[in-house]
Nucleic acid binder design. Structure first.
Lengths: 98, 98
DNA sequence: TAGATAATTAGATATTTTTCTAAATATTGC
DNA sequence: GCAATATTTAGAAAAATATCTAATTATCTA
């Protein structure tokens, strides 16, 4: 029950507004790296770094589908926590603004 | 209802393990800066910096009492969120270990 | 008022993080 | 196999953060 989260990694991951916006986007369902990237003004390389941080924190899962890599929220660790956090705070980041 | 939180400031504040340990310590009730500092291996100056970040995020309140400054959790913004976060994750920081 | 104690602010340095460009890897379809 | 597309990895530069020492501010007490 969320007891095997890497606390430091998760908080660090959540501290960046771009990463929070990525997570927010994924709440609508799985997306490819490219689809996620459309909403941001950064290079694919930078985005990839953010993905790595989120993955390391176990907040997202990846699955290769052909040439694409599909990202989705890791519901085990994340879904309940993410909802609590995301809904508790008003969105303000440049992308995914509700 | 938690809708006027400064999202970015709060997450940034929570991203540092020393600051999370400070908050954790304050869950037992208000403490002076010095009392909080006893648990850490950093200088008062560094600690003061962390207090400033927590204050800026509205996570703690301060009140001067004589030569002391007493810190407490800001229950309005924090108490419910803090409980959710702190209880959801296992403690791992050097200080305030439950 | 002077000295002691508590805490913060100023200024500098070291570390970490974010971002970029360029190069590498994986996969598709001809 | 080769070119095109999707994504990641490597390496470097810029920006942000954490920490320190030294100096400052505020308060207490003798």
């Amino acid at each position: 029950m969320a007891s095997h989260m890497k606390q430091q990694e998760v908080f660090k991951a959540m501290a960046d507004p771009t990463r929070r916006a990525i997570l927010k986007r994924l709440q609508g369902g799985p997306l490819t790296a490219g689809e996620i990237g459309e909403a941001f003004d950064i290079t694919p390389a930078s985005l990839s770094h953010h993905f790595a941080v989120l993955k390391h924190a176990d907040l997202v899962r990846t699955e290769r589908r052909g040439q694409y890599i599909v990202y989705s929220l890791n519901s085990t660790v994340f879904e309940d926590l993410a909802r609590v956090l995301m809904d508790l705070f008003p969105t303000k980041g440049k992308a995914g603004g509700k």
